[in-house]
Design a binder for these strands. Sequence first.
DNA 1: TCTGGGGTCCTAGGACCC
DNA 2: TCTGGGGTCCTAGGACCC
Length: 426
Amino acid sequence: MKAIVDCNSFYCSCERVFHPELDHKPVVVLSNNDGCIISRSDEAKKLGVQMAGPYFKAKPMIEKFGVSTFSSNYNLYGDLSWRVMETLRVLVGKKNVEVYSVDEAFLDLEEMPSEKLQQLSIEIKETVERWTGIKVSVGVAPTKVLSKIANHLAKKNKVATQCVVVLDTEEKINDALRRTPVDDIWGVGRQYAEKLYRFQINTAKDLQQMDIEWAKKNLGGVMGVRLIKELRGETAIKMEEELVNKRMIATTRMFGQAVDNIKDIKEAIATYTSRAAEKLRRQNSAARTVSVFIVPKEQSHNTYFRHGPTISSYITLPAATSITQELIKPAVQLVNTLYEEGKIYKKAGVMLSDIVPDDSIQGNLFCAPAKNSNRLLMTMMDNVNFAMRDDVLKFAASGTARDWKMRQELRSKRYTTRWNELYEIK
DNA sequence: TCTGGGGTCCTAGGACCC
DNA sequence: TCTGGGGTCCTAGGACCC
């Protein structure tokens, strides 16, 4: 059996840990730039605040009902996420925890006797809450897809289920499948949901009974086949063993305000490259391809949100590297080829790919090997910046005024990663 | 005026090889 | 005039996830 543990309204819950007076009150958390709403408490959901909706549209309602609003505080969420995951590792063993996202983890419970699963799930839920202050929901079932369905049902009926649903018999599974519309299934997005409804496939039970060949043809080939197998209780998506290195690393941002000069864009690109290089070194990798893209502001005054055309290009380096300066240089060069005078830009990004392990960099006959002093400098910068969870040390190319930086007007304090922002009890 | 950021996997199709 | 068969590698793009 497998479990999925999912934090309830994670970012909102993190804010509540340090604002207990907000329990049972509506809370929302905004994306970078205070652009849209990315986490809502149950009370905010009940008021009708839409997920991923633009903040400025919801603002009148938010003010009317006195919804507490926060800019995203990733220092805080990252730290609390780590505490939740550590708690799970203590409870079920390190090797049985697969961190799936900042607020979710799969647990491998194969060795657990089935009659103990309900009890264990309750214990997990209660311990995480006691140790971290974060409320979670637990779904248990034979496969990952089914456990996601269990979790969904637990969240939908918090009072009746106490946030724990265990699907350990055929009967319970079938009942759960009948109560789950296809668009609530993990792996079915908007496109597939529309298609399924057109075929009169309305519930997870309907989908489970479809032919494998049909899935292959209509639901994205092997992905569809896996999905149906998982719904039938047959494992098709395995637990990931250890931490796998990323094969692509990206840092992209909307600008706090639109940018109309190449200097600011270069600064932004240098900053994003530094951040991406940091992620690269954290997994002991090096990259050989640097891609840069910039997005001009859309001209039309359409009421609908549309992405403008993305202008992008890439450079493949003679040898893979993880040294920030060596990556900034080509990235900034690319900006020269992409930037067009007179246009206004609202977003930019850097992507590193062709990623290889740092210790097996393919040498290049025509290049000197990376100097050790550079490595030492990188390690030193990483240590300082990691301890502060921010880029306290940076390269001059990143700029100092940084007019393009994102807005975060409503951010709470970094209670757990800054000495001078510690929580105070009077 | 104001709409996030960071990933994964898969497929089709083109280029190229013998 | 006729124009094989099998393979690999790469890229772009679609779909999905949180």
